[in-house]
Design a binder for these strands. Sequence first.
DNA 1: ACAGTAAATGAGAATAATTCTCATTTATTT
DNA 2: AAATAAATGAGAATTATTCTCATTTACTGT
Lengths: 158, 158
Amino acid sequence: MRIILIYLFRLIHYNSSMVKNSEKILADHNVSITNPRVFVLEVLLENKGPITLDELQSTLKNKVAKSTLYRVLNDLKKINILDEFTSPENQTVVELSLSENDHHHHVFCTNCGEVEDITLSEVFEKQLSDEISNIHKTSKYLIKEHTLELIGLCSSCK
Amino acid sequence: MRIILIYLFRLIHYNSSMVKNSEKILADHNVSITNPRVFVLEVLLENKGPITLDELQSTLKNKVAKSTLYRVLNDLKKINILDEFTSPENQTVVELSLSENDHHHHVFCTNCGEVEDITLSEVFEKQLSDEISNIHKTSKYLIKEHTLELIGLCSSCK
DNA sequence: ACAGTAAATGAGAATAATTCTCATTTATTT
DNA sequence: AAATAAATGAGAATTATTCTCATTTACTGT
């Protein structure tokens, strides 16, 4: 009985701090706090990393209407805390990007389809930003962002 | 009159050499030579660079059925001479990739939506492949390919 | 805390994108 | 040139995404 109570306590505490987090994020971006937005953010926060749209949909199946899920994702994109990209297998993948300095890239596994974050060395990131400065000097483009995606095999499939 | 004849001669010559090209590409990859495949390849060859699916569709509107266009594009992907990617505005973009050594990246203009090819410096490409070797040494991933995409403003929109 | 107002949601219809089906046509082999 | 296998066209079927509108929910000022 005591174990069950401890479990329940932890569960409640965990969830309430989670909700707080989601609510704070929404409030910080001047977006009204609604159940669907909180539910979606909770899943994205718990997941911590890229997640396919399919997975997100099935996780939230009975909590958020399909049309609302699309709307919420667009809301999050609009306030710039959600990245969306397409995997080599043409799956839509989304990922929370809360802090600007949390710069990273993605690895797609061609075998199992998983997507993971990878952080490249500071040396290389410096070399990349140097290359972009060179583009600014020598070409007509003005580069504001970039994405670098690596495609290969993950540890399980290697 | 002579000018018209010269023009016609050039047009016919140009087109016939074009067809030859497309046919050779298909033959080289053990794919049967059919009208839809030749038409699609012609447009991709003439265009020389990334092209949106919409543009491709409207160019071939009365020559190739919609379903066949999708099939042909899948055929070309299967024989590894076509790359497909999604622009930041969620437009599907395809591009012929005939030679392996023609390594380049893309610039997306956030204003007009255009996509162009860009070749990065050899120095940087070397730095990038070094970084990937480091990943092989220090992480569990095996990287086989990568894509680097730059997002910003093109010359006209800058 | 409460009424009034604006915004967000759910359910499903509408639209867009992609794949599938199958009868007919076209290419390849002999 | 005939036989066989593969590819195509047309549109149906499926899937992905956006839209509509009646109802519900969140925010504002008191």
